[in-house]
Every structure is written in C-alpha cells, then in structure tokens.
Design a binder for these strands. Structure first.
Lengths: 174, 174
DNA sequence: ATTTGCTTTTTCGTATACAAATAATTTGTT
DNA sequence: AACAAATTATTTGTATACGAAAAAGCAAAT
C-alpha cells in the first residue's frame, strides 16, 4: 500500500482503534444504563453547569449544535432534561437536568460515567498525568494542522423564501 | 462529576477532541475529493486486496458488516466499486475497484488518504515514532479494560433485557 | 433427505455527527 | 425607525456505526 512513512500507518491504526473502542464502549453503556455515551456526557455537563444554552453545551462537549439538538431531544423525551425558554434572549433555551435526570446520573456507575474512562481509572496518577499530557500534545498537533475550529464564519444571509408554516421555537407547549 | 481524579477529565476531553477532529477532517476530505474517510479507507483496502468479501473487508477496517454494506452501497452507486457474486460461495460477494475507482484513488492527494494523517506528515520521524508508541500504549490499556474489566460473577439465571421506553418525534418518513 | 446449525449479506431501527438551509430574534448601522 | 448583519435553535439531508433479525446458502448430523 502506501510507501508512506514508517509509523504513519501505526498512528492511524491506533487512532481508528481508539474511536472504535469509544463506539463499542458507548453501546455497552447504553445496554447497561439505557443512556448512551454522548447523552451521559451532556448530562454530566449540565449537572456541573445548569442553564446552559444549546450552543454553549455544544461548545463544551466539542459537538455541533445540530448534533446536540438531537441528543437533547432524546434526553428530553426520556424526561431527563428540560428545555425552558430564556428570558434574556428569546432565541435561546435553557437546559437543565430534571429531578429524574439527576437521579439517573447519580445511579450511573462511575465506571460508566464516560465512554473511555473505565480503563483509565485503574491507572496510577503518574501514568495518568503523562497520558493526559501526551494526548493533549497529539491533539494540539492535529488541531493546528486542521485549521482550528475557531473562525466560525457565519454566512447566513437571510433570504426571502416562502415555505411551510412549520415552526417550533423556544416556547414549547408540551 | 469526574472531580475524583485530576487528569481524568483532561484525558477525556482530549479523546473527544480527537474524535471530533477526525470527523471534521473526514468532512473536509469529502468536500475536496467527493469521497468520505471511511469510503476512502475501504477503497484503499480493496486496492491492496481485490476480491474481498463484505465480511473480510469489514474485519480489515474494524467495522461492522452492516456498516460496510452501506459504505459499499454508496461506492457502488458512484461507480467506484463493483459487487460480483462469488462462484465458490453463493452467499458471498466479491468486491473490486472499478476502473473509475482506481482512477479516483490515484487522484486522491496523499494528504487526504486518511482522516487524521494530514497533520502528522509534517512531523519529524522521531516525534512520529514516539507518538506511535504512546498511542499504541493508550490503546492497549483501554482495550484490555474494554474486553473484560468486570470480573463480576453473576449467579443465577440470565436476565431478560429490557429496552427503555422510546418516544417518537418528528422524523423523516423516508 | 431432512433437520439442525452456522455463516454471509442484507434490512431495519436507533443514535451519533456535520453542513447547509431556515426561522426567529437580537444587535448594529444609517 | 428602517435596514442590514450577526446569532441562536431547529430542520433537512447525508453518512457513519452498531445490534438484531431476516433471507439465503452451506455443511455436518441424524
């Protein structure tokens, strides 16, 4: 195959496996707790910082807002998270854990609190720290070369277009 | 929250960023070449080893056969890959790159040959090697704990598993 | 030969994940 | 105030990704 550099393939395989493991782990958690990895992460973040908006939550868990909408939809469907319209900005919604959500989070085994963390808890602190440092280095390298995600260029020029009277805005009846 | 260990959160954030970067990278490749990361990986594998079956291809790229079916469907839809029924076993199909597929693969810039590799090519060999070693260590740790970290012995009858209540929301009716 | 059991591909359902488009609102400019 | 630009949440469309089960074929046992 590629007459690439010697270790490029190794790195790539490792990264692939890493992601594969995360996927598998997520499925397992779902079977055990009924909640998926990303959902759990969202709940944990909301437990730490209530009343986040969709965008802010998305930023904190490194996901696209559109993805977070789906995750929150499902969590809300299960009665674990609640949307409330924001008073300050009527475009925004405030996300909060419901009582059931907090309870579910409390009941979740620590080993399942995050997709990849189960295997790491057994590590001694020294190794863990080294791992954290190494990983963040890797990420930094890849990030710089991937043209940082910061310059979020908005180009949504409002357009005049008739469409279906479909609207679901912040104020939810439910 | 994961305030129990100091570096656990860092590691987790890095891993998440890693996966998010891969996703972003894949999308960018798609915009440039019209082919996504997984599709590219499948094509590369078929270029190396023609006439693979779905299962075998799935094994080689660490994916579920059901996932590979979709990937091959799309590649075939673009005329890049061809399914031919196997003579030996009429259940199987043989996968091959078409002429167009080979051409497309040849035209793909090396820097896009894999989702995460673009940023790594600029690294000197020493760093790259260290990175490879570190990564494979990480993977190994996570892998072991993902395989059988729970020596929980269960006595008695296996429980019938129960899925949780699902709620419908506006979806697309195909 | 029929049954039983396994493998292989496919289909279905669910859940990420992102880009682009849209709707509603807020902010800034004139 | 009126108009333009930027923001926010959502919808739509496409592509992974997996598990479960259907559909078809193969192989060994009875």
């Amino acid at each position: 195959m590629s007459a690439d550099r010697p270790h490029l393939a190794d790195v790539n395989a490792s990264l692939r496996q890493l992601m594969q493991l995360s996927q598998t782990r997520s499925k397992k958690i779902r079977k055990e707790t009924g909640i998926t990895g990303p959902q759990l992460l969202a709940m944990k973040t909301l437990a730490d910082s209530p009343n986040l908006s969709i965008s802010e939550l998305a930023r904190r868990i490194y996901l696209h807002p559109a993805t977070v909408v789906g995750i929150v939809d499902r969590l809300e469907g299960h009665g674990l998270v609640e949307r409330t319209p924001s008073k300050k900005d009527r475009r925004q919604v405030n996300l909060k854990l419901t009582r059931a959500g907090k309870g579910a989070l409390r009941k979740t085994p620590v080993s399942a609190q995050d997709p990849m963390l189960a295997g790491l808890e057994a590590l001694p602190d020294k190794k863990l720290k080294r791992l954290a440092v190494n990983l963040s280095k890797i990420v930094k390298v890849l990030e710089t070369h991937a043209k940082g995600p910061a310059p979020k260029r908005r180009r949504g020029r409002p357009r005049k277009e008739e469409s279906l009277p479909k609207k679901r805005r912040a104020g939810k009846p439910a």
